[in-house]
């Protein structure tokens, strides 16, 4: 089980607490966004390693190719094939 599937599993089995405190709700949003960013980085790295193009990555993420490239190219530059041009 990969880390992110473990996370999804953990989310589905846990009972999501209810809060009416906006600060606590925002803190949860920030923590989940941080986790989602990490999952996205790991998924993009894995996809590129498997030969996905930026167009495919962008489509899977539901963003433009330019947006996906801008967000991840700096980190992934120099790894694998010349994915940046695809």
């Amino acid at each position: 089980m990969t880390e992110w599937t473990a996370t999804v599993y953990a989310l589905t089995v846990a009972e999501v607490p209810q809060t009416d405190d906006p600060s606590a709700a925002f803190a949860a949003v920030v923590a989940l966004r941080r986790l989602a960013d990490r999952m996205e980085r790991e998924a993009v790295d894995e996809a590129l390693a498997r030969g996905w193009t930026w167009q495919q990555v962008a489509q899977a993420l539901g963003v433009s190719r330019q947006a996906a490239h801008k967000r991840h190219a700096r980190r992934t530059r120099g790894r694998g094939a010349t994915q940046e041009d695809r």
Partner: peptide
């Protein structure tokens, strides 16, 4: 620890939250 506490508040199990908060 703060990140872990926020993940628990979001519904993650504490053991998983601890593991994932230390990125």
């Amino acid at each position: 620890e703060q990140h872990a506490a926020a993940l628990v508040a979001a519904g993650l199990r504490p053991d998983v939250a601890d593991q994932l908060s230390d990125a």
